[in-house]
Nucleic acid binder design. Structure first.
Length: 673
RNA sequence: GUCCCCGUAGCUUAGUGGAUAGAGCGCUCGCCUCCGAAGUGAGAGACCGCAGGUUCGAUUCCUGUCGGGGACGCCA
């Protein structure tokens, strides 16, 4: 029941990765089988679900065939045996054993030969190992981060930006032309609130508990967070101030000075603070888009007219939405705990201003390039160079001064597909946006709109208590509230992570500690399933061992250390593996299989838009490297030249794969910690 | 009221129909005179909320039910 093959000449005969090779072998054998049996059926109806064998005793790779029984009208065991017999006769290279257990077809490979094939492919492709070209020619617009420009970012925003940035990297790895948009909602009530706070301060009508001035060392966004909380409290205590808030919103929207300029300056400074925070986690963008620009350029007005003229909107004269422009939904009103609510969505308030959702429809049209025909012009100018060298552009409503560099407007937006990263509480509004596109006749664009929804971040009881929240009601977690100041700010989390790294290893250089902290936080933010609420506990989030980003970096650094030691010992790793080891250790083979699976796993996780699955893969890869490291004798001391060369090459391949994978998660791989 | 999500070991969780449910933390006992102990070996710990159903096969799909969270605003 086994076929032996010459190790020397087989490796080059395995096309592509081991998975593709075995799938293609199985398909060939299956085609022969159904021809032999005289079964009239398309091969495509028989899915080949190749996976790692559940146990080493079964084989290396297995295909379950039970589901074929009904289609082929034969017992699974007969199918498996028939196909196995055909495979035996095929004498395929690098296969040492074909067996059948239960309803599974199992392959055992010539491990040294297959392993060499994997190593050669990785080292040959280098930094491109894992890259795919399936997305070439397809533009994808990804919106993420999108923090209101009135206060500091908190950990909820980090979940958004870490997921979004990882998605962007994953899609780019598949060849997609990805444009990362950071949408700034600078016309909303929150910005007006902070402007109100500034005016109240000037008039001596507002007292901040920690002091009215910006504190020494306090960043501007943190200061604004304090103002925001204070003005919120003032509204509660003096409801007459709410009039002032309304007036301020109008003033900002209508460009009344000095308020409009104050609001614009405020947004600008806050956005710079947010970008600086995100840069600490190696997150960058291609374009800043502004709600104020969408209004200022007239895109919202044109969008409204189109919605109205194509009959998407209704304009009721009585009822709860009298005088508003609405998108009708559902049938009638809904009963809620707080009373009646209508299921229709208001896009234009009775005072003539747009709601957030209305403006979001306009923006969605722009992302698809659908606003071109509306005669609305935007201007795109450089905002600045980011930490990673990527140039960030910003959208303007009005033509800039003549000497300013302007980009071709067709370069931005015009996505074939649009992905919006926002938390799950926005699901209903996202559906309104997509449904509105559909009703405008843009069915394809509606279908190509994806709400990448993720659950919120809450605080564990211990962490909430440390922020001064009263936890005597005994809940397990507490919601954050920027308005009440109950939140863990992004920079605080990063600072604490850096400090924790330095506690763990006191002589750590600052730069290394910063990179480790960023890795820890990024991994923490993507490792959970999107539907899972993250209950942030400081101790857990900052833990430097176990299933964490630090572990991944540590495994990578250890792997690099081996290469360094080999080099220092004067050993030159041969470029070609002339003689292969007689056999591989189980841990070596496991590592090789996982390396081989990287391109396919990456493609799967990108297709599924599942950063957490990428994280799980990388952890698995690092764990298998650690296993290999622990369960093989030190390469430096290895006396068998063939084994030494093979393992040295394997370490190089593992280092390359880990580096590629870590970069995809936005890590800066550390060769030394 | 309608709709959505979650429920897996003491805790945090992975698992997009397939062989014995996989980790991390914590706990017990080990491993640095051989490549980095932020590591690693062994052990204890899970009737996958509950009840039905579909299927050769269900943690996974469907129905119901219990528990928890969320959405349905002239806020964003």
């Amino acid at each position: 029941m086994s076929i032996t093959s010459q190790a020397e000449d087989t490796a080059s005969m395995i096309p592509g990765d081991l998975y593709d090779y075995l799938v293609s072998l199985t398909r060939q054998a299956t085609a022969t089988f159904i021809a032999q049996e005289g079964i009239a059926i398309e091969l495509e109806q028989l899915p080949i679900d190749l996976r790692f064998s559940a146990q080493a005793s079964f084989g290396d790779y297995s295909v379950p065939l039970q589901s074929w029984a009904k289609i082929l009208r034969r017992p699974p065991i007969n199918i498996a045996k028939g196909i196995a017999a055909i495979l035996q006769d095929m004498q395929a290279p690098a296969i040492t054993e074909i067996s059948v257990t239960n309803g599974f077809l199992n392959y055992r490979l010539d491990r040294p030969a297959a392993g060499r094939n994997v190593i050669e492919r990785v080292l040959d492709e280098g930094a491109d190992f894992g890259q795919n070209d399936i997305g070439v020619g397809t533009k994808v617009v990804v919106e993420h981060t999108a923090i209101n420009s009135n206060k500091a970012a908190h950990v909820g925003h980090l979940r958004n930006s870490c997921l979004g940035d990882t998605l962007v990297r994953m899609l780019r790895s598949q060849g997609y032309n990805v444009e990362a948009n950071n949408y700034i909602d600078d016309t909303g009530v929150q910005v007006a609130d902070v402007v109100v706070a500034f005016t109240l301060l000037q008039e001596g009508l507002l007292e901040l508990p920690e002091g009215n001035e910006q504190l020494p060392g306090e960043s501007f966004d943190y200061y604004c967070s304090r103002l925001y909380v204070a003005v919120g409290r003032a509204y509660e205590q003096q409801p007459e101030l709410l009039e002032r808030r309304k007036a301020m919103m109008r003033a900002v929207e209508h460009g009344e000075e000095p308020y409009a300029q104050l609001a614009a300056d405020l947004s600008n400074k806050i956005v710079r603070a947010h970008l600086a925070t995100m840069a600490r986690l190696n997150i960058s963008y291609d374009l800043l888009t502004w709600e104020s620009a969408i209004i200022g350029a007239g895109l919202w007005q044109r969008t409204f007219e189109m919605l109205r003229d194509r009959g998407v909107l209704e304009h009721p004269e009585e009822g709860p939405a009298a005088g508003c422009w609405i998108v009708p939904f559902g049938n009638g009103d809904a009963q809620t705990d707080e009373g009646e609510r209508m299921s229709d969505k208001i896009l234009v308030k009775s005072d003539g201003t747009a709601t957030y959702t209305g403006k979001d429809i306009a923006y969605q049209l722009w992302k698809f390039g659908l606003s071109d025909s509306l005669g609305v012009d935007f201007h795109f100018v450089p905002w600045g160079r980011q930490h990673d060298g990527r140039l960030l552009w910003t959208m303007l409503a009005k033509k800039p001064a003549d000497d300013t560099t302007e980009a071709d407007p067709r370069r931005f937006g015009h996505g074939k597909r649009v992905i919006t990263v926002i938390d799950v509480r926005q699901s209903y509004l996202q559906q309104v946006v997509y449904e509105s596109l559909r009703r405008l006749g843009y069915v394809e664009q509606a279908d190509n709109s994806t709400h990448f929804a993720y659950e919120v971040v809450t605080l564990s009881a211990a962490t909430a208590a440390s922020l001064g929240v009263d936890t005597s009601d005994g809940h397990e977690s507490y919601a954050m509230s920027g308005r009440k100041g109950i939140e863990v700010k992004a920079d605080d989390l990063i600072n604490k992570a850096v400090a924790r790294m330095q506690e763990t290893k006191p002589d750590l250089p600052n730069e290394t500690a910063a990179a480790l902290a960023a890795s820890a936080i990024r991994y923490f933010m993507i490792r959970f399933n999107q539907q899972q609420i993250i209950t942030l506990d400081m101790d857990e989030a900052l833990r430097p061992n176990g299933d964490t980003g630090v572990y991944l970096q540590y495994a990578y650094a250890r792997a690099n250390s081996i290469l360094r030691k080999l080099d220092e010992s004067g050993y030159a790793i041969p470029d070609q593996l002339e003689t292969l080891p007689d056999q591989l250790e189980q841990s070596e083979w496991e590592l090789l299989r996982h390396i081989d699976a990287y391109p396919r796993t990456l493609a799967d996780t990108a297709r599924a838009l599942a950063p957490n699955m990428l994280g799980a893969y990388v952890y698995d890869l690092a764990a298998h490297f650690s296993d290999f490291y622990e369960h093989t004798t030190p390469i430096l001391k290895e006396s068998n030249e063939a084994v030494k060369a093979f393992r040295a090459q394997l370490v190089r391949a593992a280092v390359q794969t880990m580096a590629n994978a870590l970069r995809l998660m936005g890590f800066v791989p550390l060769e030394r910690i």
